[in-house]
Amino acid sequence: MREPLIRFTDVNFIYAKAHGGEGLAALKDVNLDVFEGEFVAVLGHNGSGKSTLAKHVNALLTPTSGQVIVDGLDTVDQEKVWEIRQKVGMVFQNPDNQLVATTVEEDVAFGPENLGVPSLEIQSRVTSSLEAVGMLSYRLHSPHQLSGGQKQRVAIAGVISMLPKCIVLDEPTAMLDPNGRSEVMSTIHSLNREKGITVLHITHHMDEVIGADRVIVMDEGRIVLQGTPREVFSQVELLRSLHLDVPQVTDLAERLRKRGFEIPQGTLTVNEMVMLLCPSD
């Protein structure tokens, strides 16, 4: 069996009192394997531990007990921290608070500059990264001239210019409007498909989970549900009890199924539903 890119083994994490009150446990016995090229979505309401999970992947946090291995490197190994951060890029929620430089191209160059990449190489990486997120024509713009979705795409470019194997996105769409959200979602899906970059996408928007290979649902620091989007969304009752939404179509499918309609569990999209109800078409 092939080695996972990221492996969490019995990970527990307790926030120190200074950070979150009474020694709050944010991760409890988390076991997780993420393989190269996968698109994994992590769902959960606020405070479910999903952000804490994300910060463990690139050693911004390290487990209180247990182990996180990234591409063969243990995240508690101080010597390897910078290597891990090169392999795992992170994009955060607030588009305004993660861009450092006064122009788009300088910002995308920030990561490779930190890695000590030679100038000429940085220039070509900046160009290809901006191209990959469709922001090349904005290279000389200043960040405050961009829309939220555009800022997040620049932030993504700033991460892929470090040539990571994996990108962790911590609620990158929470502060965006619908257009911004779809810009960001199509960008990360195309990076996953075309460049083979592993994606760990953290969100509470159900519709952003549908295209993932695998969905992980978290609650109170534990992984409570795991599977394909279809498998996860067939658990409508459980999701509700975890204060999570289900897409309207899935909700309807569930209701009709209970009324005796022959509709499979976890029906996700409008198209699927139309096919089911109008099979002659």
């Binding site: 690139n58 911004l60 910078w82 951060r85 090169q86 890029g89 992170m90 955060f92 608070n97 993660q98 450092v100 191209e105 300088e106 160059a109 920030f110 990561g111 490779p112 500059e113 930190n114 890695l115 000590g116 990449v117 030679p118 100038s119 940085i122 220039q123 900046v126 700033g158 991460v159 470090m162």
Partner: peptide
């Protein structure tokens, strides 16, 4: 946090665009 995640650790060994 964002700067740290992008490998920033001061001016040592940094190159320039």
């Amino acid at each position: 946090i964002a700067m740290e995640a992008r490998g920033y650790r001061g001016g040592e060994g940094r190159t320039k665009l």
